[in-house]
Design a protein around this nucleic acid. Structure first.
Length: 427
RNA sequence: GGAGAGGUGGCUGAGUGGUCGAAAGCAGCGGUUUGCUAAACCGUCGUACUGGGAAACCGGUACCGGGGGUUCGAAUCCCCCCCUCUCCGCCA
């Protein structure tokens, strides 16, 4: 959500900037709607002011023992007029805010202009893709062959785009989660939280998934509850409707959760394997900070996610997303892409974004220093990392000719194994 | 699921239907006093939208869990819903 007065005062410049991300703001009709709203408000508020003062007069007259029948009739008439206007005021106001709530964030000046992923800019590359003296396999072949990944049974239990991890496959998932959480809490200064993954609509509105992207969510029938598509939702909403002490910022949280996405509109994309699942696990990093800190905090947060990839010995690159490829709420986003030998390509494994004040305004997350005015805080988040995709990266990058998978050093204490071989599979 | 209690400003906590945006206290901020700390005293101290103003600021409207209703007038009365707490039942 944008700040109203700023939005109004810079409409043309904002529209031009939004156009770079493929959003066309109809300036003329927005302006008309804005004026319509303000006119409607002025009219009804003037009447209300009149009613209030006349009512006070009645109170005074009554106290003096006078008859107020006539005045009461007059104020009742004003009240009737207010009531008649009310529906329109509310309709216009709702329409206005619905429009505004559907406008994406403004790209930061450092974001390159472009239409789609092709215009993303590689910031740097880290590590070298492994060279195999055999044709590297995809994880959807390696996993079932090792007996650590089972798609058929998942389809039986639930359906497409679900998977069962088995034996060391399950343990690898758990090892990754623990490794990531331990690293972020012990070395990067994050406070671990374990939030609900069922969230209400107000929370989803706060982070920007609603009202526009309801189709991407699983909703619990007959309730106002949804399955969270990312821990960003519950963790950012930890501080919804709160004023944070600016001196305590930045606040950094990490959270492990399962995430649920309907993947509506993703038909045919990544249908094989566990790259794109309805349920997946993620360790998320979330930060709240003062406005002037947020861009340095984005660099920091992104480096924390990169550190996980680095420690796991996985080759990756950092991409700065162009205006056309960013998410709705983001002002600036880095994607981390991990090398997947099975696909012979880099694949997104983390997305780190600075939302600036966009979410904070929606969610009423403010910060205030001892002698400052309250202002919207800035919020950030990033995957640190997507666990399932990290699982894929490990299995594919560390695969051996004999079909086994070598466990990277950093994970050995967690997995209590040096190599994953076809053992301990589901009977 | 059943019964009861309650939701008021950053916090605690008052509030007979009529200057209540809301007492009081705490915290915060500014100041006086003080050798320092502490204390005391004085002042100040909500948010959103909106009109005016370069700004400081001034005016209007709304907000006492949410939504309706009664009334000239609602934090206060009525209805519905949500949430929290306590007890009972069930349950990981």
């Amino acid at each position: 959500m944008h700040e109203l007065s700023y939005f109004r005062g810079n409409l043309d410049a904002i529209a031009a900037r939004l156009a770079t991300r493929g959003y066309s703001l109809d300036v003329a009709s927005y302006r008309a709607l804005d004026q319509e709203r303000r006119a409607a408000l002025t009219e009804s508020e003037t009447l209300k002011a009149q009613r209030n003062s006349e009512s006070n007069e009645i109170a005074k007259l009554k106290k003096a023992g006078a008859d107020t029948t006539e005045q009461q009739a007059k104020v009742r008439a004003i009240g009737d007029r207010i009531k008649a206007l009310e529906d329109n005021v509310k309709a216009v106001d709702d329409r206005f805010y619905e429009t505004l709530a559907g406008v994406p964030n403004i790209p930061h000046e450092s974001v390159p202009t472009g239409d789609d992923a092709d215009a993303n800019v590689e910031v740097h590359k880290h590590g070298t893709p492994p060279v195999f003296d055999f044709p590297p396999q995809n994880h959807w072949d390696i996993g079932p062959a090792l007996g650590i990944l089972d798609f058929e049974r998942a389809a039986k239990i639930t359906g497409a785009r679900f998977a069962v991890y088995v034996g060391l496959g399950a343990k690898l998932e758990r090892a990754l989660i623990n490794f990531m959480l331990d690293t972020h809490t012990r070395e990067h200064g994050y406070t671990e939280v374990f939030p609900p993954v069922v969230v209400n609509s107000a929370s989803l509105y706060g982070t920007g998934q609603l009202p526009k992207f309801a189709a991407d969510l699983f909703k619990l029938e007959g309730t106002d509850y949804y399955l969270a598509p990312t821990a960003e939702v519950p963790v950012t909403n930890l501080h919804r409707d709160e004023t944070l002490d600016a001196d305590l910022l930045p606040i950094s949280y990490c959270a492990f959760t399962s995430c649920f996405r309907s993947e509506a509109g993703a038909y045919g994309r990544d249908v094989r394997g566990i790259i794109r699942q309805h349920q997946f696990q993620k360790v998320e990093l979330v930060k709240f900070c003062r406005p002037e800190q947020s861009h340095e905090q984005l660099e920091l947060l992104t480096s924390h996610a990169e550190n996980i990839l680095d420690r796991l010995g996985l080759p990756f690159r950092r991409m700065l997303l162009c205006t056309g490829d960013m998410g709705f709420s983001s002002a600036k986003t880095y994607d981390l892409e991990v090398w997947l030998p099975g696909q012979n390509a880099y694949k997104e494994i983390s997305s780190c974004s600075n939302f600036e004040a966009f979410q904070a305004r929606r969610a009423a997350i403010r910060c205030k220093s001892a002698k400052g005015k309250a202002e919207p805080a800035h919020t950030l988040n990033g995957s640190g990392l997507a666990v399932g995709r990290t699982w894929v990266a490990i299995v594919e990058n560390y695969q051996q000719k004999d079909g086994s998978v070598v466990v990277p050093d950093a994970l050995r204490p967690y997995l209590n194994a040096e190599v994953i071989t076809p053992r301990g599979t589901l009977a």
